[in-house]
Amino acid sequence: MSEQDRDTHQHHPDYWKIYVALVILLAISVVGTFSGILWITFIMAFGVALVKATLVAENFMHLKWEKVIAKWVLGIALILMVLFFAGVSPDIMKDRGLQWVNNADLAATARGIPDEEEPEKGAPASAPDSTKAAAATQTAAAAPAAAPFSPETTFKTVCAACHGPEGEGNGPGAAALNPKPANFTDPAFWTDKTDSVLEKAIRQGGASVGKSSAMPAWGSILTEAQAKQMVAYLHTLKGK
C-alpha cells in the first residue's frame, strides 16, 4: 500500500446515511409513477436519478475529495455528450424539417397509435411504395395500375437495364453482374421454369428463388396481376 494513497484519503462520510437516502429516493421515483400526470412522473424519475447519481459520485466514488483533474476528465466526457445530443437531435428526434419529411416515422406513428386516429381505411392502398405515409400524401397514391399497364413498356423501361431490350441478358447493367442476368430468348432457360417461380422472382427478387440476389424485388412496383402479365410477355420473347 504505497503511502501516496493513505494521505490523500482521510474522508469517509457516514455511508449508512447516504445509502438510506438513496433507497428513499428510489422509493420516491417509483411512487412518482402513480401520479398519472406525465410531467410529474418525468420530474420525479429523472430528477431523482440525477440526485442519486451525484450522491453516489460524490460520496461513494470520493469525487468530492478527488483532485480537480479527475473532475475535468469526467466533465469533458459529459460536455461532449451534450454536444452530441445538440448536433444530432434535430435530425433524429423530429420527423420533419426544412424541405424534408421522415415518412417512415410518420407511418410508424400512424400505425402504432390506432386508437387516437380512426384506423386506416380498408386494405393498405396499393401505393407503389410501402413507405408512402398515409399522412404525408393524402391523394390516392396512383399506382401504375391507374394507367393501363403494358408489360412491354415496363420491360423496356425497367427490365431492359439488365436483361437487354430483347431479353438476351445483355443490358448495360449486365456487364456489372456475375452471374449474368437471365436470357429469355434461349429455349434452354425455359426448360425448368414454371410461371409461379418467375412471378416470385419478379416480385420478391432473385434471392427468393435461389437465383442471384442482384435481381431486386420489384414487388413494390408490380402487383400480382402485373407480374403475371410480365411473365406472359417473357414467353413471347422465347426463341426470338
Binding site: 452530441f84 448536433g87 444530432v88 435530425d91 433524429i92 421522415n102 417512415a104 416515422d105 410508424a108 410501402s130 413507405t131
Partner: peptide
Amino acid sequence: PARGGDPILWQH
C-alpha cells in the same frame, strides 16, 4: 427506416 430506425443516426 421501415422499422422505426434511422440511417442518418449512423452517419452522425
